[in-house]
Design a protein around this nucleic acid. Sequence first.
DNA 1: AGAAGATAGCTTTTT
DNA 2: GCTATCTTCT
Length: 705
Amino acid sequence: MDLSGLNKSQLEAVKTTEGPVMVMAGAGSGKTKVLTTRISYLIGELGVPLDNILAVTFTNKAANEMKERISKILNINAKGMWVSTFHSFSSRLLRLEIDKMPPYTKYFNIIDDDDSLKIVKEIMKEMGDLYTSPKEMRNLISKSKNFLDFKIKDIDRRTEFHKVFDLYEARLKKDNLLDFDDLIIKTIELLTKFPNVLEIYQHKFQYILVDEFQDTNELQYKLMRLLSAKHKNIFVVGDDFQSIYAFRGAKLENINKFQRDFIGTKLILLEQNYRSTKEILNLANNVIINNPNQIKKTMFSENNFGSKPKIYSAYSSYDEIMYVCDKIKELVLDGDSYSDIAIMYRANHISRGFEEQLMKYRIPYKIYGGLSFFSRAEIKDMIAYLRLLIFNDDNFSFKRVVNNPKRGIGKSILDKLELIANESNLSLYDAIPYYKGKGQGASGLVEFKTIIDSIKATIENYKLPDLIDVLLDETGYKDELYRTEDEEVAEDKLNNIKEFKSILKDTDEESLDSNVIKLQGLLGDLALRTNNDDNNDGNSVILTTYHQAKGLEFKDVFMVANEEGIFPSSNTVTDEEIEEERRICYVGITRAKKRLFLTYCNHRRIFGYDTDMSPSRFIDEMDKSLLDDNKVRKAPVVNYNKPIEKKTVVESNNNDIINVGDKVNHKSFGDGVVVAKDGMVITVAFKAEFGIKKLKADHPSIRKR
DNA sequence: AGAAGATAGCTTTTT
DNA sequence: GCTATCTTCT
């Protein structure tokens, strides 16, 4: 096997196959190369069977890429290997073993955050007035599952939480559902409860590799520790500079814990950066140095010098967008292709303005992440219909589609049906024949069952993609779309469904199994799929959040919207949170190979209000000698001075008279002080990131404090 | 039941 | 400024 492309440390990381190894791999230090080479080495040189290796990453894309690279190096098909995300791994294992933990069955359905929120909403709706909003509650539930030291101080809120939590868990259990967090939790539960099962997998996975180790949380760490306890051949790769998932429970302490838990851990440092120019790397080091609690480490590079990162101070977000578009055109004229270029930002909503303008400029672009294809309503509807065809007892899918298209089946009818189902221990679907009653709803139920039954009876007669067309026609879904939506929207949704059909086509051609078996396999893990799985990177500019950009690299990177309140986000306050934001900034900078552009706006529309912005503290912190300052802008660009207009103003119910000097609270901007008054128009100074605004004193969002 | 109109809530970050 | 959800009217 050819290992000549590796440096000394990389080689050591590949060849130290026995015992615990921890690699601290800085940005651009060849981490993926080490991982794939090591796996290939295990298989190709040491003759380890494919099945005895487990590699875990954080994104499907990273997993797929690893498999592809291994396939190439060894000239084998690595598709079936245990190389996946933590969640996919858990799901795969649970499909094999969860039958041991009734009432769950291996046909469990995985629900995404949206579904989960919907369930929480349903539960809370019946509980009346509550302290916590459903969204908050959903957050708390996830936190309680991921943070071992989770606690709610306030006793009322705590009892409320436990009530909802218990109902939520019961509901999931009853319907054979697992949320994302459950995938990991149930896997640990299974392995702990059934030592013989644990034994099997400990024996099986002789070599375990964990990517992005700095982002593992306590549960994920526990899972890996359980599995590796026998062979102790565990290899973890991480970079504490790039730890950006503390909000999801990631524990940097795992790095220290690992060395304590696995005695004799070999520590390997990869400190040479092969990616970026010296100027870019200098800036990255200059940023991260402001994190006092960071373990000191300096990446070095033997790469050539390039140009200094450029910084641009824009008047408005429109101005910022135009600057970026102009620069992209220049870069392409200079010979770069669109796919060399990425626009990166802290929060997804920033992409909107860029999309519009890129389209106008005819610059091809692709949004990386954002709303997942599989979380679109029409796709979820199709999946639910398919699931119901295969699994009649899937109550969750049943509820999603029974009245979609409308069949006159409302809540009261469903409640009655549920009662019947519970009494005779049937699924909602099987309870339909026992539903006594007449009227639209009753006949709607019967009609629904007839349609599903008839499609089910002929399911093997079609190719899988054609099955979707049958569903669209027979259920009336297509007609309903055209009836209730604008034509454009309907076409759009049907296009998405068409894309979904192509996924079914792939599944169809993969095996000679029956349609039912094929669907059982496919439907299992659709919830875990994301947009970015297929990297058919054509020639497009990539728009992405910093989080999603991790692990990627681009020749030219634009970091946009570097403003206080956006980046760092206004939600981050504590020192620890700010330090995480700074690491996000580090991740952004180190994505760039050749050219880096930083921009910020002095004005931005936030929640529909024109807002004064100030540059990000991360910009302030940068040593200006490392930057090429481009902030010459002649005149403010038009398009910005649109008057603030509210469609409706409602009389506020408190008749407080608001005067200059009064404290007020605005729903979106928080507390502020009235600095001027002109009739009913007050001028309020809010927190720095929201600046000074003119508002109507009787606007419902305003309250006197 | 369903269209039209009004309003609240929203923007972290992801599997 | 956008969108999901609630309210009101037919």
